[in-house]
Amino acid sequence: MSEAQIKSLEEEFEARIARDEKIEPKDWMPEKYRKTHIRQMSQHAHSEIVGMLPEGNWISRAPSLRRKVALLAKVQDEGGHGLYLYSATETLGITRDELFEQLHTGKAKYSSIFNYPALTWADIGAIGWLVDGAAIINQVALCGTSFGPYARAMVRICKEESFHQRQGYEITLKLAQGTLEQKAMAQDALNRFWWPSLMMFGPADADSPNTEQSMKWKLKRKTNDELRQQFIDQTVPQAELIGLTIPDPDLKWNEEKGCYDSGEIDWDEFWQVVKGHGPCNKERMKARVSAWENGEWVRDAALAHAEKQQEKKLNKAV
């Protein structure tokens, strides 16, 4: 294809997206579109399955049977959502094994929030309330993204996740209404998870060079800072309602702008965790890699059995 042809295809492609048409896997697409989508969608998928780990740690210790089944179902959902997202990514011509390989070798990233430890039961509340709350803001916007399989996966995920944040908020609420010890536990979890949750929206707009392209492809509907602001504005009253304090001395309502002013994020910490030096980066990867390696003989066995069965069938037919 000549450069002029590619350019005209690209223009037509961008025009389709601008008209709100969806792009489907077999459609022509610019190489950059394919690569960006593989990167973002797999990163999203990896976040789901690494996200199973901190909460998964608490399944065996959940304080009641009701909490235990809710947490199990939630962590399982995350596995399911990872699966939906891997499947959607696979339509772009990459296998799940290759994607795992990228995760296990550190080539692919996942959301940094899961590199923070879940230390108390209240952290399970905070993760559901804040982390899922932040994730939903991002995900709802993605339901209208331009790549069909990604948009469809997001619709299903958003529908299923609607209970996740409620689950977390309910846990936190119960603690906030409980004994002094329980309330302190809830406040401590909020203190530790507040800032990392704000970091989930990514670097400040000024440091986010890909925003314009992502907006065009509808991978983003709003900028990082706009989404972060939306999260703060919706979460502060939720904390106030149950008597918890957001750990930001600079937080105050700005009457003029109609939203909260807030303090500066510790961007050094942000980059440190992104670069792989957060509190749990190594542990999380070790857990994923060992599940994968310990599972190899199982996956091989199932495949070998399937092949033998197939052969038997063929022999019978002959």
Partner: peptide
């Protein structure tokens, strides 16, 4: 079985054991 959630040999099997 709950201990295994997130550590299964494949995503599909992980989800099945949790069920």
């Amino acid at each position: 079985l709950g201990e295994l959630c997130g550590h299964g040999p494949s995503l599909e099997t992980d989800i099945a054991l949790t069920n």
